[in-house]
Design a protein around this nucleic acid. Sequence first.
DNA 1: CTGTTAGCGCTTTCAG
DNA 2: CTGAAAGCGCTAACAG
Lengths: 331, 331
Amino acid sequence: MNDVSPFKAATLHDVAKAAGVSLITASRALGNPGVVSAKTIEKVQAAVESTGYIPNLLAGGLKSKRSLMVGGIVPALSVSQFLPTVQALTTELAAAGYQLILGQTAYDAEREESVLNAMIGRQPDGIVITGLVQSQRARDRLRRSGIPVVETWDLSDRPIDMVVGFSHLKVGGALGGYFLGKGWKRIGIASGDDHRARMRRDGFQTTIGRELPTAFVPAPSSLELGRRALGQLLETDPELAAICCSSDQLAHGVIVEALARGLRVPQDLAICGFGNADFGAHTVPSISTVHVDGAEIGRLAAQLIVARCRGEAVAQPVIDVGFRIVERQST
Amino acid sequence: MNDVSPFKAATLHDVAKAAGVSLITASRALGNPGVVSAKTIEKVQAAVESTGYIPNLLAGGLKSKRSLMVGGIVPALSVSQFLPTVQALTTELAAAGYQLILGQTAYDAEREESVLNAMIGRQPDGIVITGLVQSQRARDRLRRSGIPVVETWDLSDRPIDMVVGFSHLKVGGALGGYFLGKGWKRIGIASGDDHRARMRRDGFQTTIGRELPTAFVPAPSSLELGRRALGQLLETDPELAAICCSSDQLAHGVIVEALARGLRVPQDLAICGFGNADFGAHTVPSISTVHVDGAEIGRLAAQLIVARCRGEAVAQPVIDVGFRIVERQST
DNA sequence: CTGTTAGCGCTTTCAG
DNA sequence: CTGAAAGCGCTAACAG
C-alpha cells in the first residue's frame, strides 16, 4: 500500500459487478430503495461495504441537475453577526443532505460579482446571501440563472427571489423612539460604514429629528474601533449623554473606553449596541442591544431553498423575522 | 420573461457555435489560451459575452479530476479561534480559483465521519480540518481517498498527510513555566472539555508538578461559562491566586466575574487566556494570553493544498507555526 | 422489480 | 494551431 491512492476509488460500476446486478439497479438500491427488492438492496449494500464505495456526487449532479450544494455568501466570516446564520444554515442544510460552499465578498461589489460567478459555475441548488445584492448586473445574472436565491438580514419588496430578514430602517426608528423616551438630548452615533448600519442610522436620525454627530468606522467593527470612536465623538461633543452603536462589539469598546475615562455607564453616558452578541449579557455593565434571531434567519433560508428544490411552491417569499430591543444595564 | 429561467443556461456548445469554432477550440480558448490564436480567443470571448456563458465546473471537474473545491471542517463556526483560519483559507483558496465547502462536526466523532463522507463524495481537491482526525477508520478512509489532507491547529509525527499547527502540550508547558516564574502557588484551571484544551491542561499540570483544581466547561466556551467557572473554582478553593483559562472568552468571563465579586485583577487574582482574541487587548484589565497565528495556519494550509494540486512535491509536510505568550494587565 | 440506452457539459486523448 | 472521437460516473427515460 502506497502513499498514492493504492487503487482507483470504487465506482458504482464496481459495486454493481460485485453485487452481480446491473449498474442502474445498484444506483436505485442506493438512491431510490423503494423500487428495489429487499434482497437486492442487501446485496448492493454488502458490495458497497466491501468496495468502500463513496458515490461521486459531482457525476450524479451533472445528470440529475441537483448538485446538493448551496452557496453561502457573507462579507467576511469574522462579521460575527452573521455567524449564527451561517452556522444554522450549514447545519440545517447538512440535515437535508446539502453542503454549503462559502464565499466572502469583503464588502466589495467587485468581489461580490466574482464570488457569484464562481458559485454559479458550481451549479448550486440555491444561494443564500447576507444582505441585498447591490449591483443590478449581479441581480439580473442571478435571476436569469434560475437558481433559488435567498437574500437575508434585510428586507425588500422586490427581492431577487426570496428574502428573510428585517427592516434596518425600522430598527433605527425603534431605537430613536427608545432614546427619545429616555429623554436624552445630546446623542451620538458610532456606526460601521456598511450599507445596513447606515440604514439603521438613517432611521434613527429620522425619528430623533435631526443630524447627529457620528463616528464612522470601517466594517467589520470591533472593540478597538469602539474605543476610538468614543474618543472621536467626545471631541465633537464632550457633553454627550448617550451613544447609539451599530454593533455590540462597538458598544463594548465604547463602554470600556468610557469606564477608562472615568465616566459612569449609564449615569454619565448611556450606550446601546446592536446584534445581541452573547458576551453582551455578561459584561459589566451589561449591554443594551437589539436582538435579531440570526440562527432563525439561517434555518428559514435553508428551508426555503430545500422547499424550492423539492419543487414545492413557496407561499411567502418575503419573511420578516422582526427584532426587539433588549434593555440592560448600559442604558 | 418568467420566474423560471427564461432559456437554458448557455453551454460551451452555444459559445462555440456563436464563435464559429469547434467545441474544443472554444474550451481551449478559455482554459488554455496559450495554444490558440489570438484572433480565435477574441471571437470566443465575444461569444462568451453575448451568450452570458458561465462554465459548468462540475462537468469540467468530472473529466479533469479537478473539482476546484476544497473541504474545510471545523467543530463549529462559532468557535471563534478558528475563524481567522477559515477566513484566510477561504480567501487564499479563492485567489487560486478554489472554493471552500464547509463542514461542521459539533465536536462529535460520528458527525465527523458523516461530514467527511459527504466531502469525499464531492471530490474535493483537498481537505483542511481543524485538529487531528481522531477516529482511525476516518484516518484510513481519508488516506485511501488519495485526497491531499491538511490537519491544523495541532501537531503530529504521523499526520494523515500534512499538518500545520503547534504543540498544545508545549503551550501548556510554557504557561506552567510562566505561572511558576510568577511565584503563584494556588492555581486553578478553567478549561473547555475538548481534546486540545485538555492537552494544554496536561502540559500545564506536568510543568506545575501536580493536579490542579479544574472547572471543565463544555466546548465551545464563552464569557458566560467563564463566569460560572470562576464560581465553581472559588468554591473548591476560595484562596486561588491565579487561573489559567483555555480561551480568552473564558478568561474574559472569569475577569468579569472576579471584578463583580470585588476581587482585584491581577492583584487578588491573576488570569490568563488563550487564543489572543481581538477584544483581549482592549478589555480592562487587558487579558494576558497565548498568541497563535490562526490566519497564517489558514494561508499555509491553502498553499500546501494548492501546491499538491499542481503536482509539486511538498518538502515540509509538518509545519510548526509556534506560539508566544502575550503578557498584559490580567497577570 | 430489473435492464438497456442515451447523454449531462466538459476535457482528455489522438489526429490532422 | 485546430478538430473528431471518446468518455469521466452517474441517473432519467423508456422498455421489458
